[in-house]
């Protein structure tokens, strides 16, 4: 007690005033970067190949905006929706105690992660060559018919012309969504595995089934780990929609910009326009990702925001009273 008192009574020493460490290297770096930036600006402003006025005139034309909205943006959203949903399913299959589901999931992720997206899209764009029509019904019906001596037995419910179903947008969507599902499956799996096994045990001890445990206990906690890489995947997906050119899908931003460039023999300015468009779009997504991460990082006991909530919490009403404020390790 007395030692404490004397400690508070002692005069506070003069604050430290020391000469800070010098960083001459930083000034050199600034000088070098300034020169490089000046050179870059100089090229931008003086080189005629940029054709700035032509570019600005053409990059907002209706077909390009159309391709942006109904191609790039719509494709990104739908491919991610399917990709995330299917990815969760594949991840759960991969972690299932059922060895058949496990191997199917493994095979799926192996295939779709091993084939480059560009190649995958080219394949899906031409997959219509395998069938003229895609029909749903009893598999191997004609073969079964032959076994029983019936020629041309057809047990089909409905079908589509494959050129309608599997070309352009649908083929592109299928390629991007299926490939995305494989990457999302790995992300979701990592998220699920990051949750303390004690959580599953506690839920099991309470009599919850595997499905209930997953839905109510494990997945909500895995979200914190799943969300940030999913944001990255969305940004990557937005950029990868430019690969749709190889399906080919014409209603798409890069295809349209490229077409204008080729038609007007001003290819380079339109490629610069593409850079600017993608920069703008991904920047919007980056802002969205920031807020999403902030939202999902919340409410998790030991992280920052919970401390603030604790300070505002009502005074403890139980025996633990005084200890409550130091509850957080």
């Amino acid at each position: 007690m007395t030692a404490e008192e004397t400690a508070t009574e002692r005069a506070r020493p003069e604050p430290i005033k020391a000469v800070p460490v010098r960083h001459p290297g930083r000034w050199v770096a600034v000088a070098v970067l300034a020169v490089l930036a000046a050179m870059f600006l100089h090229v931008l402003l003086t080189n005629d190949a940029f054709q700035w006025s032509f570019m600005i005139d053409h990059m907002f034309r209706p077909p390009i905006i159309d391709g942006l909205v109904r191609g790039t943006v719509l494709m990104t959203v739908s491919a991610m929706l399917i990709g995330v949903a299917l990815g969760v399913v594949v991840a759960i299959m991969r972690l299932s105690p059922n060895p058949i589901l496990r191997s199917v999931a493994w095979l799926y992720t192996w295939f779709f992660r091993a084939v480059p997206r560009l190649v995958l899209l080219a394949v899906f764009g031409n997959i219509g060559i395998l069938w003229n029509r895609i029909e749903f019904g009893v598999p191997f019906d004609t073969h079964i018919g032959k076994l029983f001596g019936i020629d041309g037995l057809e047990l089909r419910l409905f079908g589509f012309d494959s050129r309608d179903l599997l070309s352009g947008f649908m083929a592109g969507l299928l390629g991007l969504a299926l490939s995305e599902a494989a990457y999302m499956a790995e992300i979701v799996r990592a998220g699920i595995q990051s949750v303390d096994p004690g959580q599953t045990e506690a839920a099991g001890a309470l009599g919850m089934t595997r499905a209930q445990t997953l839905r109510r206990v494990v997945l909500p906690q895995a979200m914190r780990v799943i969300i940030p890489p999913t944001g990255n995947e969305t940004i990557a997906m937005l950029k990868d929609t430019s690969l749709l050119m190889y399906v080919p899908v014409s209603m798409e931003l890069f295809f349209q910009l490229d077409a204008v460039g080729k038609r007007t023999f001003q290819i380079f300015p339109m490629y610069v326009a593409a850079c600017l468009w993608y920069l703008l779009l991904t920047s919007v997504l980056l802002v969205g990702q920031y807020f999403l991460e902030r939202h999902f990082g919340r409410g998790y006991g030991r992280t920052g925001p919970a401390r603030f909530r604790l300070r505002g919490a009502a005074p403890a009403g139980d025996g633990g009273g005084a200890r409550d404020t130091e509850a957080i390790p």
Partner: peptide, 23 residues
């Protein structure tokens, strides 16, 4: 278990003893 005042708290806001009583 003496935690009537903590119904709406999250486990991370409780001491170990309180958490175990909730458990």
């Amino acid at each position: 278990v003496g935690l009537a005042a903590k119904l709406d708290a999250y486990p991370g806001q409780l001491s170990g003893g309180q958490q175990q009583r909730v458990a």
